[in-house]
Amino acid sequence: MLKKRIIPCLDIMNGRTVKGINFVNLRDAGDPVELGAIYAEKGADELVYLDITATHEGRKTFVELVKDIARKINIPFTVGGGISSVADVAPLLNNGADKITVNSSAVRNPGLIDELARAFGSQCIVVAIDARLDNAPDDWTVYTHGGRKPTDKKLFSWAKEVEERGAGEILFTSMDHDGTKNGFAIEALNTLCNLVSIPVVASGGAGSMEHFKDVFQQTPADAGLAASIFHFGEIEIPDLKAYLNQFHIPVRI
């Protein structure tokens, strides 16, 4: 049986791991390669590395980091941040990344998703969507640039479009939940998972082991992603998996 995945996300700035609390006030949580190796050892199913400085600085440093991660870590990992062309992706996959993720650049140029899927295969193209419930219920507005910029896109229609364009997975972050530690966006995840037939990674709001249980029991989400609660040791991955297993949620132990 295919298992539900637990994914620590590491935000990278200047080669170091950071985590934004509500996307501002960054705190330092260590060396990305070492931290990734520790997570792999503890039973993380996958890792996501987001280079949050990529749009402003050279990408060469990040490519080198990807190579160091691939050299050291024996589980799959996704990388993203500042990818806007096929040429940006090739060195990341060629140096051992398993998947890449695009966000702002896909909103700006949706055809990029088609191009990437054609060039590398859908299975390695993850589209990250950050959205916030701005007005009426279910009216989720898509944001870009790390949650700073509202767009004219809506979560559900954009998710359907990225699937049709060839995305292999959706990483949905609820900005209303991110950093709150009050649990995942259950309702939106249910709508999203029933709308698309590609895997959905739930992100934003995890504050306790119960929140992971809720997201896997109450939605068909394929994976749960979190950052600070793992980085600062508030939840240990082996404890989380043992806990989920008690509730018969299929996890890799």
Binding site: L2, K3, D45, G168, E169, S197, I198, P199, D222, R252
Partner: peptide
């Protein structure tokens, strides 16, 4: 969800 992606 196809492709199968993950641990089995």
């Amino acid at each position: 969800k196809i492709p199968q992606m993950g641990w089995n």
